[in-house]
Write a protein that binds this DNA or RNA. Sequence first.
DNA 1: CATGAATGAGCATTCATTCAT
DNA 2: TATGAATGAATGCTCATTCAT
Lengths: 213, 213, 213, 213
Amino acid sequence: MTMEGSTAPRRTRIQQEKRELILEAALEVFSVNGFRGSTIDQIAEAAGMSKPNLLYYFRRKEDIHETLMERLLETWLAPLRELDDIGDPMTELRSYIRRKLEMARDFPRESRLFANEIIQGAPRIMPLLEGELKTLVDEKAAVIRGWMRSGKIAKTDPYHLIFSIWATTQHYADFDVQVRAVLGSDRGGEGRFEDAARFLENLFIQGLLPKRD
Amino acid sequence: MTMEGSTAPRRTRIQQEKRELILEAALEVFSVNGFRGSTIDQIAEAAGMSKPNLLYYFRRKEDIHETLMERLLETWLAPLRELDDIGDPMTELRSYIRRKLEMARDFPRESRLFANEIIQGAPRIMPLLEGELKTLVDEKAAVIRGWMRSGKIAKTDPYHLIFSIWATTQHYADFDVQVRAVLGSDRGGEGRFEDAARFLENLFIQGLLPKRD
Amino acid sequence: MTMEGSTAPRRTRIQQEKRELILEAALEVFSVNGFRGSTIDQIAEAAGMSKPNLLYYFRRKEDIHETLMERLLETWLAPLRELDDIGDPMTELRSYIRRKLEMARDFPRESRLFANEIIQGAPRIMPLLEGELKTLVDEKAAVIRGWMRSGKIAKTDPYHLIFSIWATTQHYADFDVQVRAVLGSDRGGEGRFEDAARFLENLFIQGLLPKRD
Amino acid sequence: MTMEGSTAPRRTRIQQEKRELILEAALEVFSVNGFRGSTIDQIAEAAGMSKPNLLYYFRRKEDIHETLMERLLETWLAPLRELDDIGDPMTELRSYIRRKLEMARDFPRESRLFANEIIQGAPRIMPLLEGELKTLVDEKAAVIRGWMRSGKIAKTDPYHLIFSIWATTQHYADFDVQVRAVLGSDRGGEGRFEDAARFLENLFIQGLLPKRD
DNA sequence: CATGAATGAGCATTCATTCAT
DNA sequence: TATGAATGAATGCTCATTCAT
């Protein structure tokens, strides 16, 4: 049973659908050009509608971006939320890395949109970073620290561990063109995500020290 | 001994200084707002000169950006170039990571400018990525593969190893606001780079497996 | 006995009521913002109906304004029409002034709407001014001139007399905010109309010459 | 010796001239169409320059209007400021009426611009009305009251006296088209101001009571 | 009757770039 | 070199009006 707040504007099904269409188009455009580099015309064109019609659904360019960012953060945090205190530490972390990498593969535009916002100093979502995000990371860092104390994984800084997982996985979305340019046409195909998964698993588990005996 | 080709415009020292001033200002502005989000006015203001005067030194907005990007790539590749076949593998990689992290700390604007360009699909420097960058990475990947064959470091994918070093170190420049937001005021200060250095060294050398007795 | 011409659209009572609602709302909006400064949205909102619904009753924004102006002129001329040749001149003029002042008090929005139209050069009602209005004023000016000839009131220009009555009374509607700002909170209340009535009676009857003993 | 505040932007002679040109054009346009009813295009056209060029001199439409209103109020209050305690009351008032009527004749656009602003509730100059204007009127009302006490003019309300002078004189600017429509082509020419002057002098001095022998 | 949806034309403002001095 | 002035081409957004249901 859901209870929508009375402040939420009532919308018809068609309106909802059109709004989704616009958000999809905006994601495409914003993720490449950033907020200021994108024009309403581009988004309208991508959404297959006229500019004033688009503005009938979202009154301001910023409203589109805002809606996109709100949804984004939730999607973005989901994998971390699933990190489970109860499970086996190594398995949990391995799953987390895999899920993040899958997101980089399946939602690269979302990743780039987020990266764009952060690089520019997070002018629009700073409060969310300091609030919801920090709270969640603090919580999960405590879990990881528990695992370290119990000797299940090596003692190290849990925050920077999380950062490094973010960095390495999101890299395959945000820096995709560079990855493909470097790997070349033969290794830059879809297989690159499997290679990355294999590599990251190795890295995070064993590092670069040669196998003993 | 430098030999400028005859196509390079001759410039006086004063001219050169003004150009540097502009590039410095442009770096400041572009790295935050992106190319399209930045205006010549902002750059001129930051450089302390009038807009037409700025355009006397760089005829087009894009020229400034281009010049910046050209220099950038060189700076950016320098640490990798230093990776030396002859040295001890573990020491070499450790130094590389440290140098990259120092760059993230000392040249965050350059890092963000570069990230901006890549995220947008590298419309301006794609040729450099496929040329110079790929060549260098291929070369160094071969070196690393040699180390792996000789058993000095664990066998894994050298390309993805390089990507993960890029990702983890540049993260501290590009996603700086997020890092600071998550770490909070007590741990987000200047010490964060030392913490990161320590963590990354551990990660790349030993991974997360608990220490063997 | 009214006989509507066959060109007049037949309207149900409900239709008529809705039209009145719209006109009332439009008066409110137009009188403050002027024609071009007012939007159909504002009027629709004030009338409590949707924009397309409003346009069902008046097909064009201008139609609303036109209807409003037509009625307005009638209302506006009514007090002058009542000026009666037969009555006592001083009493008649005094009553006229009083009626005009009451209109300024009770129908300030109508007054402002009219003023707006005239200030802008009467683009929409010029014919009415040159026709109906001029005819009526000519007629009443003749009456007043008759009074002057018979020595009942001082000899002066009857047209400018009418203008000055219009000007002084309508001033309390059109320049209301200025009047209230100058009088301040203590004297700017409802009493201002009585003060004005007393003053204007004095002015028009005796002028500023000190009373003769 | 004038001392310009350091906040005033320095302007070249050409800039000053162009600004005057724009203000002149804006007066023409605003006084007819009101603020919202006027477009920058109209003003630019009237000033004989391109729209962006106009915006080079005034960055916002509102800035033009504001500048105009500031100057306006000063001009508008000048005649009242001249009302002199020392002079002969009747002469002083007669001169004031004459000066105001001359302003209505010579600066009708200014008058209409002012009327437009007041009718719309003075959204932009209310503070000036409650401040500067009220202060001046209070002061002059005291002067007039002094004259009344000394028996030089009839006892009446000085505030409403001032209002009626404003109303009757400005009427010939603000309601000019109506005045001319009513007077017709033979009496609506330039002579109408002289007729008005004669009439108002009579009205304010003697009222309508027939002359005593 | 009523309303959600759609749009062409318009409008204030910005911006890269050019021109003249 | 340096800058005040000028402009064409956007760009975000508004609004009267029409359409479809």
